[in-house]
Design a protein around this nucleic acid. Structure first.
Lengths: 103, 103
DNA sequence: ATGACGCATTGACATCCTTCTATGTGATGT
DNA sequence: ACATCACATAGAAGGATGTCAATGCGTCAT
């Protein structure tokens, strides 16, 4: 439960950077290798590598090694768990509704 | 388009902190005043105020002032726009699929 | 008016994050 | 074996972020 919060925070933290959002936009067009991402992003190669590690660790992106190339794609499970969290948040549970405290 | 990225990043950045996630969990039970959030969170009052500002600025929470009390609740529109972004990311558009670059 | 209360703002400090250059590692080709 | 290529890792620098104590600002009651 408490570790759930940690994982959720890591997931959304991963989504909270402009360059990583651009990367995800690119990946929404399908699996891409690192070199293609690199030429689309105006960052250096180590910076891209750093962002890809964060995205993979958070679970929203998965990597596939093929020879010396690295192919990245969006992980459906990662997106699903993010969506599941948003749903849980949205579900303003009327049953849980409590009396206002201050009036 | 570019400002969309900024707004999206701000929204997910707001979701990427453990205490703010706890706040949203509390708010999923319905509107709450700041004092209730405060006693549930083991942070000081200025820290809570700071987090509430970030959540409100990102659009995922809205505040309602009533006398000297501040009531916070989850903004459906904010959650929707977050969900919309996740959907856009998920939609692995087969039409946009391109030839792999490196093989 | 004055004091108490609820919350916001300021300023300081420590930590984390993003980015870079430099270097390491593993696979491919000659 | 050696050079080259694609990517990862290490280390450093600067900026952003989370937290607190102190203070400010409305609002309410007396």
């Amino acid at each position: 439960m408490e570790s759930d919060i940690k994982k959720t925070a890591a997931l959304f933290k991963a989504l909270g950077d402009e360059n990583r959002i651009r990367i995800l936009h690119l990946l929404s067009g399908g699996e891409k290798c690192a070199c293609k991402l690199l030429e689309a992003l105006s960052v250096t190669q180590p910076t891209l590598s750093h962002h890809m590690k964060i995205l993979c660790d958070s679970g929203i992106v998965k990597g596939r090694k093929e020879g010396k190339w690295m192919h990245y794609s969006i992980s459906q499970e990662g997106v699903d768990s993010a969506r599941r969290y948003l749903d849980a948040m949205t579900a303003v549970n009327a049953a849980k509704e409590e009396k206002p405290c201050c009036e």
